[in-house]
Design a protein around this nucleic acid. Sequence first.
DNA 1: CTATAGATGCCCT
DNA 2: GGGCATCTATAGC
Length: 175
Amino acid sequence: MLNKLLVRGERSGRIVEVEAYRGTQDPASHAFKGPTRRNATMFGPPGHLYVYFTYGMHWCANAVCGAEGIAMAVLIRALAPVAGIDAMRDARPHARKETDLASGPAKLCQALGISGDDDGADLVTGDRGIMILDDGMEPPCKPGISGRVGIRAGAELPWRWWVRESVWVSKPAAH
DNA sequence: CTATAGATGCCCT
DNA sequence: GGGCATCTATAGC
């Protein structure tokens, strides 16, 4: 998914940072203990958007990528803004710098206007105006690799990847 | 630049 | 009732 485009209406950004969450096999996944109301989308078919609410105020977005019944998902953690940047600024009035627009999983949801209403959207057909597009840019040969951010169980697993040379990631200095 | 605190509400046990 | 797959402002240097 690195270097693919996340598109929401006129707004779009290039995915430069992701994390893997491996369902019932992963203690950090919302699906670790099996299906619940909140994680239902992750147990559905692949290619759909799983949006969850956290910390009392933030939305975060994942692409479901496991077969139906297998709750694998990829958290989208940062975007390099591509189009609709004025709309992103309007959606994030507190962002002072361009690099604050979408350099975090909740920031990018704010920037693109993604919320719980968008949970379950089909990212392949774009039925609800949100899709992931391949414009031909290759993923990086040697992405940055580290443990996942903001978790406790499973923190040592190297399941965060980012575009090394990108200034748009959530933690540019991390190695 | 780093470190820290506080906001805030929903899910699940 | 505990615990968040986070962000922002502020303080200090």
